[in-house]
């Protein structure tokens, strides 16, 4: 809560990180933006105007946001209870859960997506279970559907939801829950009025992580849904790699960047406001 005006020398510790980011992200991004806007010679917004006036672009933006939101929600629904359990667990149980969450990170995305291809096939495990318990009348294919993409992507990103929430939950004084209990609060009331509000900063961080990764994923949609379905990230990749349309690629990349930065900044601001009370 230091007032503006006095410079805190500890901030200098961030200089290497800032330089690094400028080098590997900042400069290429500027180059991208330049390519997109300077394509006609003089700087112009024409590429953006062109992009936004094309109806297909809006479908792509819609796809990107919808998939990212659904993946984020699924990660939150799966990740929050896991984080709660992890924070409550002790000793060996905690170590095992932690390993189960972190170890899959060392398995490449391609391998995971390949595994999901098998699971989501018409004769895959999911289909067999669903028909087996009678929820589906006949076997269905989840592979190459949006649902399959959301499920597969959530699986890859869920650790990035669990870990920030867990690290916040772990720091909450267990006496607070006890105090609430002795004041007459039921377990459900305690959860919604004590644990949940105090863990909001972790939730917001997890949302920022997962949303930005899900909005910009490229390999997973390629493997799980294919060309028919385009997001800003897959379109960027196709533009550069297959269509050799650098201008379109730069434009979609910048739009995606603005989208994710907006979400991350909004969640950081939210986290700061909520964090101010925790």
């Amino acid at each position: 809560m230091s007032k503006a005006g006095r410079f805190d020398p500890v901030l200098l510790l961030a200089v290497p990180a800032v330089l690094y980011l400028a080098l590997v992200y900042g400069i290429p991004l500027l180059v991208l933006l330049g390519r997109s806007m300077l394509a006609g010679g003089a700087p112009s917004l024409a590429p953006f105007i062109g992009f936004f006036s094309d109806g297909f672009s809006w479908i792509v933006i819609g796809n990107t946001i919808r998939i990212a939101v659904l993946v984020t929600l699924l990660c939150l629904v799966i990740g929050y209870p896991t984080a709660l359990a992890l924070a409550r667990a002790k000793g060996l149980a905690q170590a095992l859960i932690l390993v189960a969450i972190i170890l899959p990170l060392s398995v490449g995305v391609v391998v995971k997506a390949f595994a999901w291809q098998i699971v989501l096939r018409r004769d895959g495990v999911v289909s067999q279970i669903m028909t087996g318990i009678g929820l589906w009348d006949e076997p269905q294919r989840l592979l190459f559907t949006e649902a399959g993409l959301v499920i597969g992507a959530a699986n890859v990103f869920v650790p990035f939801m669990i870990l920030p929430i867990y690290s916040v939950l772990k720091l909450i004084d267990p006496r607070l829950g006890e105090a609430a209990a002795t004041l007459g609060a039921s377990p459900v009331y305690r959860f919604f009025k004590v644990a949940l509000p105090l863990s909001l900063p972790g939730i917001v961080t997890g949302i920022a992580f997962v949303f930005s990764m899900a909005a910009s994923m490229y390999v997973i949609p390629n493997l799980l849904i294919g060309d028919r379905f385009q997001t800003l990230a897959t379109m960027t990749g196709r533009s550069f790699l297959f269509m050799r349309n650098e201008q379109l690629g730069s434009t979609t990349a910048v739009v995606l960047l603005v989208l994710t930065v907006a979400v991350v900044v909004a969640s950081a601001a939210l986290s700061k406001r909520l964090g101010g009370a925790s």
Partner: peptide, 19 residues
Amino acid sequence: PPHRRDVSVVFQNYALFPH
């Protein structure tokens, strides 16, 4: 369980809700 006892506690470390 504690929430159905009607016994309230002033904790040694206060345990006030920081939020």
